[in-house]
């Protein structure tokens, strides 16, 4: 049994959105149209939220990559009327069976992290791109909910590979596309139950926080605080 989780170091994150795009490529997430974007109907399993505080010139801005938190106590799973949304026992990952989803959007409303997205229309891939989407991940159609899966389609393959080499799954065998792409190594993914894994070590550190911890959802995405570092004397400038 494993319990997959992620640590994102906000001190390292430079808001480049590489993770967000790598996620789209890996998971065949549709791109939006200008019209959809203006209606807030973009699908972005992972997005980088800029959180700015203060006024000129004393502004602090943090970039927070936000994705499904794969909560231990998810709000989305109990409200799903069809069992399309589930919590995987073997991995702790919250998954979505698209063929079971009836598009009621209860889960999207229930999710405190706004991490679930509804397909308001058919995806608009031109033939040239559609033919070369990643065949490891199915494409979603109109009227189903989708969200980050922690790239769970990679897990069976990683297991097979390990098995074929006659060994157990190692830390780093199964990683997400966002982690792979991150240029600053801000994202670390792995098994929280493996106490020696990189992600487990980081998640235990004093800088590790989770979003909206007060809700008791027990998210499995941890954020390492942006470090203050230098005290800038604001009076002189």
């Amino acid at each position: 049994m494993a319990r997959y989780g992620m640590v994102i170091d906000l001190n390292r994150c430079v808001g480049c959105q590489s993770c967000a795009v790598a996620c789209k490529v890996e998971n065949n997430v549709r791109f939006s149209t200008p019209e959809e974007a203006s209606h807030g109907r973009e699908i972005q399993w992972m997005q980088v939220l800029p959180v700015a505080e203060g006024e000129f010139p004393n502004v602090v801005e943090t970039f927070i990559p936000v994705l499904c938190n794969h909560c231990e106590n998810p709000s989305c799973v109990p409200v799903c009327p069809t069992g399309a949304t589930y919590q995987s026992e073997a991995t702790g990952i919250i998954g979505q069976v698209y063929t079971r989803c009836i598009g009621c959007r209860f889960c999207a409303v229930a999710c405190p992290y706004m991490a679930r997205y509804f397909n308001w229309s058919k995806p608009h891939w031109p033939e040239e791109m559609k033919a070369r989407l990643n065949p490891d991940v199915s494409t979603r159609t109109k009227s189903v909910i989708e969200k980050c899966t922690f790239c769970s389609h990679r897990l069976p393959r990683a297991r097979e590979q390990a098995l074929s080499e006659g060994r157990k799954l190692r830390d780093g065998d199964y990683v997400t596309a966002c982690m792979e792409a991150c240029p600053t190594r801000a994202i670390v993914f792995g098994d929280l139950d493996d106490s020696n894994s990189r992600v487990a070590v980081l998640s235990r550190g004093h800088r590790a926080k989770r979003l909206r911890e007060e809700l008791g959802n027990e998210p499995k995405v941890f954020y390492l605080d942006q470090q203050g570092g230098w005290d800038v004397d604001n009076n002189d400038g």
Partner: peptide
């Protein structure tokens, strides 16, 4: 507010 998803939902 941040995600701009209010309308979408």
């Amino acid at each position: 507010g941040l995600t701009g998803a209010a309308a979408g939902l």
